[in-house]
């Protein structure tokens, strides 16, 4: 069943081209529609970061070294996750025009949308690297361990794709999944070490980084980008397991519920 989807997907030669085309248009739609254009994509994490910086550094006096960068990397990973999950719950509705007249594989719709988010993530990561290496006074500079970031990101991509598939296919039969997931993400946001000091987080919620895949991903991203050490391989393995687990469930739901999207939505 799952292999059926993948076989079918790889069968046609213009599919990669199509994915890229759809991703480019999706990205353009999102950022070029408003006045600020691409600037908005870059501005948003900076503004988020400024808000949290004021609250946690200046008001609450959190003592994390290089706190601005600490926040920055946590936020861009988190934003990718939210954009790719909350942002795609209604994808089968908004992109209906792509599959209601032809036998196009629905998986392509998901991958292209996540690719568009990946482009945004790429810009944000570039901004982070510039900020961290040129402006951050407590920076440790560029390290070889930075090369691990694609692996961490691949993990994030798989996890987001899996959850996106689950949510949007449940949406076909239960429309209020949007609200439920909204509540759940705000819980998850506070259960992830985005703005807490890691030691505090670990003390309050022992082993929680193994339960919350986002926490693990953020911890590993900081290790490879800011601390110049290898990722925590146990944690990475755990998170890949989570990602693949959600992806498999997502595929099953796509087959069971998503195939009926044309008649139900």
């Amino acid at each position: 069943m799952v292999t059926g989807i993948i076989n079918d997907w790889a069968h046609q030669t213009n599919k990669l081209e199509r994915l890229w085309l759809l991703a480019k248009i999706e990205f353009k739609l999102r950022y070029y529609e408003n006045r600020l254009g691409l600037l908005w994509a870059l501005l948003k994490p900076v503004m988020d970061m400024a808000i949290y910086y004021v609250v946690f550094k200046i008001v609450l006096k959190v003592d994390v070294p290089a706190f601005a960068s600490y926040l920055f990397i946590g936020l861009i990973l988190w934003n990718f996750f939210v954009e790719s999950t909350s942002g795609t719950i209604q994808i089968l509705q908004t992109k209906k025009y792509l599959y209601e007249y032809s036998n196009m594989n629905k998986l392509e719709i998901y991958i292209s949308t996540l690719l568009a988010n990946t482009i945004g993530f790429g810009f944000n990561l570039l901004m982070f690297l510039i900020f961290y290496n040129l402006l951050e006074p407590e920076s440790v500079g560029l390290q070889f361990t930075n090369l691990w970031i694609p692996v961490v990101f691949l993990n994030l991509f798989i996890l987001s794709l899996g959850i996106s598939l689950i949510l949007s296919n449940v949406f076909v039969v239960a429309r209020d999944v949007t609200q439920l997931w909204g509540v759940f993400t705000s819980i998850l946001f506070f259960m992830s070490p985005i703005f807490y000091k890691l030691a505090m987080f670990k003390e309050a919620l022992p082993s929680f980084e193994y339960l919350n895949p986002i926490a693990g991903l953020i911890i590993n991203a900081r290790r490879v980008l800011m601390e110049g050490v290898n990722p925590d391989f146990n944690l990475l393995l755990f998170d890949f397991f989570y990602g693949i687990f959600f992806l498999v469930i997502g595929f099953i739901l796509l087959n069971k519920l998503g195939s009926k999207a044309a008649e139900k939505i």
């Binding site: 030669t13 213009n14 081209e17 759809l22 248009i25 739609l29 025009y97 792509l98 599959y99 209601e100």
Partner: peptide, 25 residues
């Protein structure tokens, strides 16, 4: 006709729809 998105321009719709129908860029 084919499925088209109202948010896209005619040019983009031509490319997207043709690609869905199996054409290369």
């Amino acid at each position: 006709g084919v499925g088209m998105s109202h948010e896209l321009t005619a040019r983009e719709n031509i490319y997207v729809a043709s690609s869905v129908l199996g054409l290369k860029i």
